[in-house]
Amino acid sequence: MIASLGPYANFILLSYAAATLAALGLTLWVILDHRRLRHTLTALEARGLTRRSARAAARLAPETPLETTLETQA
């Protein structure tokens, strides 16, 4: 396969390696960033910190289960 790419196979393979690295790097970046942010947000909410809109929603419907409130915030 590599031999069939001719005398400049290294240049071709390096290009595809760079593209793979860029695509996977960006994908990993958004996934790991999302996990970290979700973790931080959950920790803050566990300390009782909620957004103004979430507090207003909770005041209007005190019987709303916690899961629903968190889902609305997400």
């Binding site: 960006l26 994908t27 958004v30 996934i31 960033d33 999302h34 942010l37 979700r38 931080t40 947000l41 803050l44 909410e45 300390r47 910190l49 909620t50 957004r51």
Partner: peptide, 22 residues
Amino acid sequence: LHLAAMRNEILRRRIRALGLTA
């Protein structure tokens, strides 16, 4: 990637706002 990064940016701003509230 753009949609996912936008979602992260919104969460980052929410965390910042909650941090300021705290």
